[in-house]
């Protein structure tokens, strides 16, 4: 329950900051809050709950953006699925590769979002331009992600590793008792 309450609070905080402070910033300066929140949700919860909360984040972003409802929900769900596949790799990664992964997720979400809206609006999209703008936006906002993840996942990685080290002897003891 505590974890779910924490995730809900994290989502609410992300959305109020995104829609009040961030909306006033120039487009290139808008931070990565939704993408990083997505990654944190997936890291902090089990697979089913992680996908549920990610979708919830996406659906509320839809309501703020005033675009077609359901698009961000779908994208967030797809991204959360992809993150679940990558999750086993996190525990073996150090903070810097994790931060690079966050940067890639930012770029990928931006790319997916622009491509999807372009297709739904019936526009012909130049894939090079879309990729260029997605990389540019992700880079400008992802730099902050790199800094946060170096600090955040550096700490989180240590916590997870220490939990694994505690859990491993217990499993060995459990097996010995059986």
């Amino acid at each position: 329950m505590l974890r779910h309450a924490g995730i809900l609070s994290l989502i609410y905080l992300c959305l109020v900051v995104q829609s009040s402070l961030v909306a006033d910033l120039p487009e290139l300066g808008r931070p990565f809050l939704p993408a990083v929140t997505l990654v944190l949700i997936v890291a902090w919860s089990n697979p089913a709950a992680g996908i549920f909360w990610s979708g919830f984040l996406g659906s509320v972003l839809d309501c703020i953006s005033a675009d077609r409802l359901g698009v961000q929900l779908g994208l967030a769900t797809i991204l959360a699925l992809g993150l679940q596949l990558l999750k086993p790799l996190w525990r073996s990664c150090h903070a810097l590769p994790l931060a690079a992964m966050a940067l890639v997720i930012c770029a990928f979400w931006r790319l997916l979002s622009q491509m999807t809206h372009a297709v739904l609006n019936g526009r012909i999209v130049d894939p090079h331009l879309v990729l260029k703008s997605a990389v540019r936006d992700a880079t400008s906002t992802g730099i902050v992600a790199v800094v946060v993840f170096i600090i955040g996942f550096g700490l989180l990685g240590n916590i997870l590793r220490s939990r694994n080290e505690i859990a491993a002897p217990r499993r060995r003891v459990g097996m010995a008792v059986r």
Partner: peptide
């Protein structure tokens, strides 16, 4: 990936499709 997470993902994708085609009054 577990069955539960796959099921959840399918439900959410269906919801997203439903929201996309929902009437404007509901969306508002």
């Amino acid at each position: 990936m577990s069955t539960a997470s796959g099921f959840m993902a399918c439900v959410l994708l269906l919801v997203s499709v439903g929201m996309y085609f929902a009437p404007d009054g509901v969306k508002d």
